[in-house]
């Protein structure tokens, strides 16, 4: 390194570049103060939607938790569109023709203003529920109404405190999954255990009872 420095800084160009580097750092500092571009958030939403599409494919429902013959299984999203997440998910479902129990799934989006409709839908039985950040729906209520549903949301607390099955977090410039241990252990709906081995992608939160006993 000393050799490199001696050879490089002995030339005028070396000093020019060193100066340019310092100016660059200053420029970085000054222009770091503005709000983050929306494209980054939309990109994150696209990756989240893709994860969701994959997770649905790796989940198995028992016959009791599938709709009657002739009725499509349902993927319900409740809450306002955010950064193109809902549009991305709807697009992915249409492109990949996601099937649940061998039948093409139906995608339904209810805005917050239509919580009543969403609750009615869930009560009729759904397979996936995604709760957007501004949704007024309660996880416990959804579980009671539709035990067949895998419940997705945002943030670690959605799983740890809220009792949801899966949530997305941004960590180390990547989208990560926070999964409830129960999602792997219960009979239905049950996620494939292969996903648990992807340590860089998945953080598994133990069941509340297991966590309490360990504490």
């Amino acid at each position: 390194m000393i050799l490199f420095t001696n050879r490089f800084l002995s030339k005028p160009a070396g000093w020019f570049l060193a100066s340019a580097f310092i100016l660059l750092l200053g420029f970085v500092g000054i222009t770091s103060l503005t709000a983050s571009p929306q494209e980054l958030e939309r990109r994150e939403a696209r990756v989240q939607a893709t994860y969701l599409a994959h997770l649905i494919t790796f989940t198995r429902w028992s016959q009791d938790h599938l709709p009657k013959q002739g009725t499509s299984p349902k993927i319900v999203v409740h809450g306002s569109e955010q950064n193109g997440f809902v549009a991305s998910l709807e697009y992915l479902i249409s492109q990949s023709n996601i099937e649940i129990g061998g039948v093409s799934a139906q995608f339904i989006h209810h805005e917050n203003a239509k919580s009543g409709n969403a609750m009615a839908e869930i009560k009729r039985g759904v397979q996936v529920v995604f709760i957007m950040p501004d949704s007024a729906l309660d996880i416990k209520t959804i579980r009671k109404l539709s035990p067949s549903a895998v419940i997705f949301g945002f943030g670690r607390d959605f799983v740890i405190q809220g009792g949801g099955d899966v949530s997305f977090v941004a960590s180390r410039n990547r989208v990560k999954l926070v999964l409830s241990e129960n999602y792997f252990r219960r009979t239905s709906p049950k996620l494939s255990a292969k996903i648990a081995n992807l340590k860089s992608v998945v953080e598994i939160i133990k069941n509340r009872s297991t966590r309490s006993s360990n504490e």
Binding site: L40, R43, R46, T50, H54, A170, N173, R174, V175, V201
Partner: peptide
């Protein structure tokens, strides 16, 4: 462009999806 990217993301498995940087 976003739709085309979604199609490409759909082809990735979990491991590769975990390598996609946000920024």
């Amino acid at each position: 462009f976003e739709k085309a990217e979604l199609k490409r993301l759909l082809e990735l498995d979990f491991r590769d999806l975990g390598r996609v940087p946000i920024r």
